[in-house]
Design a protein around this nucleic acid. Sequence first.
DNA 1: AACTACTTCAACCGCACGTAC
DNA 2: CGTACGTGCGGTTGAAGTAGT
Length: 519
Amino acid sequence: MSYTSTDSDHNESPAADDNGSDCRSRWEGHALKKGPWSSAEDDILIDYVNKHGEGNWNAVQRHTGLFRCGKSCRLRWANHLRPNLKKGAFSQEEEQLIVELHAKMGNRWARMAAHLPGRTDNEIKNYWNTRIKRRQRAGLPLYPPEMHVEALDWSQEYAKSRVMGEDRRHQDFLQLGSCESNFFFDSLNFTDMVPGAFDLADMTAYKNLGNGASSPRYENFMTPIMPSSKRVWESELLYPGCSSTIKQEFSSPEQFQNTSPQKISKTCSFSVPCDVEHPLYGNRHSPVMISDSHTPTDGIVPSSKPSYGAVKLELPSFQYSETTFDQWKKSSSPPHSDLLDPFDTYIQSPPPPTGREESDLYSSFDTGLLDMLLLEAKIRNNTTKNNFYKSCASTIPSADLGKVTVSQTKSEDFDNSLKSLVHSEMSAQNADGIPPRQREKKRKPLLDITRPDVLLASSWLDHGLGIVKETGSMSDALAVLLGDDIGNDYMNMSVGASSGVGSCSWSNMPPVCQMTELP
DNA sequence: AACTACTTCAACCGCACGTAC
DNA sequence: CGTACGTGCGGTTGAAGTAGT
């Protein structure tokens, strides 16, 4: 950015912004000013808003002669001029709330700002970016472990509220899957590699996975980056039944430990969500259980468009009603001081040691969600392949899924149909590495995982989480899971998508995605 | 004091959505 | 149905400020 004017000079800059409808660079022959606002401009804007109220920002320049575009006026008002704005550093409570909110929402700054009176989305965003850098430097994960538990609690509340029909506004465009992230991260990843335990809490854990793999100016990819087409792709991914069921069925680690893998498997089974008009799964909010699922879901349509080949380590953000969030807040545990900087008390409770015995994983149920995921992955290995197809199907828009008839739901044909859809979807996108439904909206690459700094950062990642980085490759895993045919398709896909959006080397996958051999 | 490196934050940019026509 | 417009959001940028040498 090159500010072309300052407070002292009131020259109108020959604005470089000629991009049409947004901030037009000129208005009635005058160049629109850019850069910092002068106090005189502020006064004009304040006066205008006092007289006419907020909104209709483009009219400001018409009525006041202020050579600022409407967007600029709105931003200035919202971030600096409107009353009741809090200035200064965030309080401890605010900081903690931001961390909690981010764990639940991702990079939804405006939504987070709604919970922080007097604070703007921009402030929160800046704070968060600063926090990322600080903690990265300190080699700390972005979230303390307690976040997982809280997120789990929240997801239950959230699931309840959804079943009760709340949050209709956001249900209108529910999409399944962590839509923007890499295909395997979305769909194969935890839902299937770690079947049955993929909900908000899981993604919080996953988020932590990536907390370190960033570099200056690129750190954001490790936080839940919303896609540029975020509103369409907004992920409401929740498998509320799964984690909730886990919690209900196994109220204690001992109980979990004493339960047969089969029971755990059934309890944690993979639930395919549904949507209101979904020809396959039934009506929205109709609890649906398919295959080996014993867990009703509240129904979310699997219609996300995967970003094939784009490893963005992105996590879905969760929309929620304000009511729901408040409910969650009430039910959540008391504030944790270790949510806060400076690197705080988290240092006193370091990440779990690496290289555990599996038995230790059982006993870590209450502390390490990621460990739980790993454990489940082992338990559930046998069901992974079939689930993979279902998961792939979850990336296919519901319209296409409609090709799979309801009668096929529980039959082998169902799986075959899904496989067919998956194949066709993959082959369609293989040509240029972009899924056909995504070509029209090519997005900026948010992560190039081949970047040296990104790869280097992975050690930080592992360190911060205490994860043993296994050496097995993802391609091997896929070969095992899918057979050579499908697996190769995905390998090719990965290569084909290596330009632009960001290539993905399988060996670069997070450790959790490299789980291959199970005892 | 001068220089450099780093951090903070205000503002810009592009995109997407909703609405009116 | 397509287009223009207004608005809002999230990501990015770079000037200004600060700390370190």
